[in-house]
Design a binder for these strands. Sequence first.
DNA 1: CTGTTAGCGCATTCAC
DNA 2: GTGAATGCGCTAACAG
Lengths: 348, 348
Amino acid sequence: MPKPTTSRNPARPAQSTMADVAKRAGVSKMTVSRAINGGLVSAKNKKRIEAAIDELGYVLDQTAGAFSSKRSGFIAVILPSINNSNFADTARGITAAIANTGRQLLLGYTDYRVENEEKLVESMLTRRPEGIILTGISHTDRTRRLLGAVAAPVVETWDIPANPIDHVVGFSNAEAGRSLVHRLYERGYRNIAFIGGTSNRDTRGAERRLGYTKAIEELGLPRGRVISFGQPPITMEQGGEAIVHLIQRWPDVDAAVCVSDLSAFGAVMECHRRGWPVPKRIAIAGFGDFDVSRCCHPRITTVAVDCHEIGRAAGDLINRSIDAARTGSRLAAETMLIPFQVVEREST
Amino acid sequence: MPKPTTSRNPARPAQSTMADVAKRAGVSKMTVSRAINGGLVSAKNKKRIEAAIDELGYVLDQTAGAFSSKRSGFIAVILPSINNSNFADTARGITAAIANTGRQLLLGYTDYRVENEEKLVESMLTRRPEGIILTGISHTDRTRRLLGAVAAPVVETWDIPANPIDHVVGFSNAEAGRSLVHRLYERGYRNIAFIGGTSNRDTRGAERRLGYTKAIEELGLPRGRVISFGQPPITMEQGGEAIVHLIQRWPDVDAAVCVSDLSAFGAVMECHRRGWPVPKRIAIAGFGDFDVSRCCHPRITTVAVDCHEIGRAAGDLINRSIDAARTGSRLAAETMLIPFQVVEREST
DNA sequence: CTGTTAGCGCATTCAC
DNA sequence: GTGAATGCGCTAACAG
């Protein structure tokens, strides 16, 4: 319930402008602008300007600066979710890359829907970002059109597009799924299932399933052991329910590849709860190397990707693209492959 | 390794402006502006303008619009971390509150450091946000001064400040810690320890410890069973190490309250690994009602707070403050208490 | 190193 | 319902 209290917010003074600072320091606005933006200003003037700024409590108005210079300083970043430590790590990587560049993130999330991506792109373009970082390779036609009409560099991350918009920093989710199945095969597993979502809304999850299927066929293993369960992203709880369905339906299954560590974790815990030993009764593997997989018991086999590095590399690409644009040139589109790695642990 | 590919980004056309749209539609710029911003425009003109916008691929330049109207449309949001589902939920709550208002988040994270908060506030004020949402009540003097010089409404969240800056949406972390200990006492536990970080950098964690200590004293239970372990936020792994230290140092301890669910989870898993039954050998409780606590085995007792609602309420307060400012008035500072709830599960 | 002039693209204000 | 004039606060470009 709201509990209004006494007034703690009296009227506040209007913000002072660069002209106020200039007048107080006895210089022109331009000199103030230079002092703030690292231009050449005499030490004496710089000191007086800093004093004036301090006394007036002046804060640069980038709303005007960006407009005037036609450089917003914004990097638009669109993630499927911020409540996912993989993507949060990518966001942190981008932040690290743009630290001390004076650039700022404009962060949005789609809840794994391309329609939301389109809305976010449209809304963010309104702020004239100098660079755009997207997750995934699945975009609406309109998103592509909007992006195509803009001069800002674009980076697609977390996957490898067949038709890139511009730059790419990613890895093949299909290869990751495939590798995991091969590794399980090497360990002796012969009846390997896949647990994932019902739709292809999470295209990365769908790719991983594709890689799984490919490996199953390559190895001549029994097909069709696929549990589709819930709208992506599937939760820990759903992973637990799925493993039960799986074992009831195909009691001979000896290993399960889950679309992410979250569902794998839910599956492992549910097995524990039911007294099904992992990996003896069934081996379980996930994807994403989440903290939870590294810490739980048994520790969960997974595919590790350097999510932070995806962000760092994407941010770096944007930085270089912007720098290039300022010298009038243009950074040729690059594709960076980020390696992934199967990490075998106790659950297999 | 970077793998440059062929050029996929030819020169792009310059962005068209509102004047271009106006000319093409045969109206004035003002009519276009009204059509875009929901003003009164004849159906005929609206249709022609929409057609022109579509043909030109025009996207409104808010960089200019914000400057001209002196309304940036930005809400600055500062969180300790985005890699924490509690805070991510709060961010989602804010997003939900400002949906369809045309406002946009400016999101930053501090890594639990007030100095970083100061830098973020300074950098964000530069964008002239119309509202500011902070996490916690611990701010540097300079942050307070910067915020005091600005007309934008401020909301402090996730705690109850003694001296609020403006609005507040939170709960007492000390009370939460205290309640949890009392509940454990009711369940029969008499030797209750606390596991948390080494510093007060995470002020909410420190508050929870304070509440723990208070309850211990109220109940006349053995004091000093406090394990301080690592810079906040403590990880799952550190929770696991801490529980081992705890049991080695005070073998008679029968329950542990952890500063968050993450450390509690690490502790539970480590016990499992070592064959210490939870809660028989030791009961373990956490804080935050993370997914992992609800899903693991045994399920972990925790304190649940509606993190999404904290964000929703904060966003709502900002919306109402901005709306009030537009009618020339000012929303009196409000304090909203968000209830918390001890959720008892299998781990106690 | 510093100042002057000009203008960014839009919304406000007022007139019609 | 529509248009014209005006200016937001800053930085680019140039002159000194």
